[in-house]
Amino acid sequence: MDNIDKKIIQLTKEKTISGETLSSFFGISRTAIWKRIKKLEKLGYKFSHLKEGYKLILTSPYLLETEIKPFIKTRLIGKEYIFFEEIDSTNIYAKENNLNEGTVIVAETQTKGKGRKGRKWISTKGKGLYFSTVLKPEININQLLRFSLIFPYSVYETIKQENLTPKIKWPNDIYLSNRKVSGILMETDIEGSEIKKLVVGIGINVNHNIEDLNEIKDIATSLFLEKGQNIDRKRFFIRLLQNIEKNYFQFLENKLNPIEKVEENLLWKDEEVKILDGNKEIKGILKGLDNQGGIILQIGNNLESFYSGDLSLRKT
């Protein structure tokens, strides 16, 4: 969407404007104006087509730049905003392109969305949030696990603001009613001991119904299913981006310890769990997190820490 499209939206939102007036204003033909109106309608905008001209009667339900960016009160996250109606993966795009820090790439649907360990993420068009953020923090590699906890905590915060009671499944999932509602995938570009770029992909089931989650309905849920009503995706997304930025800068300024926040809201705390490490299975009582962000299991009389990677945490 270029500046002419954005201006057409702005002008027709205020009043009915004839094609002739728009044509004269932009210095293009009336046919070109009509084609732009049709293109905007394909993006979800609805216009009345009257003798007097065009009038915007309904904004797009999609997470377009014009629908999100003007309302983001951030200084970094989302200042550069890239929208796709469909893409293979926002994480792939972020990794393959030279993007500035804070750039947000959002898609209405992904054909190759993925979670941890290459698992597929179902991306129902217009129902969820599927986006990636590019970050370039000046942190030590040893801080990566601790740093990564910012993102499940930010999603947790935003969902809780919907009067729901989420829990954080270590290291990067959010659960409601013991079913997964969100997953986070952080991919790193490291040279030597220097972090060149981090790409944080987040997927959230927002307005999915049972049919949307049919294949995984026993293990997944959505905000809609838990709350019993549709969620305003735009408002939710804007709030989430603002929470991510707040927590990101507070972490860099040593004003936030995400380990404490995650531990307070940890799924299965003080319950028996198992860790799968390849063919190896380790059982214990989940006691919390250590000072690096790893989980602590009580195995017999001993406390042992485990760290993310190829590990999978499950309820016994």
Rank of each mutant, 00 (worst) to 15 (best):
K227Y: 04
L64C: 04
L267E: 12
I190N: 05
N98D: 13
R146W: 12
I105L: 15
F224T: 09
L225M: 10
K234R: 15
K51A: 11
T124D: 11
L241A: 03
I275G: 05
N163A: 13
E215D: 06
N98H: 14
D173G: 04
E187M: 00
S154T: 12
V273F: 02
K136T: 15
K42A: 10
E272Q: 15
P258M: 00
A94Y: 08
I195V: 15
F71C: 00
T103H: 03
M1W: 00
G284C: 09
K180T: 03
E67H: 04
Q250C: 07
K51F: 11
H49W: 10
Y130Q: 08
E108K: 04
T111A: 05
N3Q: 07
K42N: 15
L240I: 01
I184T: 10
Q292M: 03
S23W: 01
L286I: 06
L63P: 01
V181A: 08
I202H: 05
N98K: 15
A107C: 00
K51Y: 13
E52C: 11
E226A: 12
N214I: 00
T31L: 11
G118T: 11
I295N: 03
E67Q: 13
L267T: 10
F131M: 09
I57N: 11
D270Q: 13
F236E: 06
E162D: 12
I190G: 06
L144M: 15
L289T: 11
E281H: 07
I259M: 02
Y307T: 01
Y156V: 08
A107I: 09
I295Y: 08
K197Q: 15
D290K: 01
I244C: 10
R75N: 08
S123D: 10
N205V: 01
Q10T: 14
G128Y: 06
N100M: 14
V155D: 09
R146I: 06
S154D: 09
I210H: 06
F147D: 07
F47G: 02
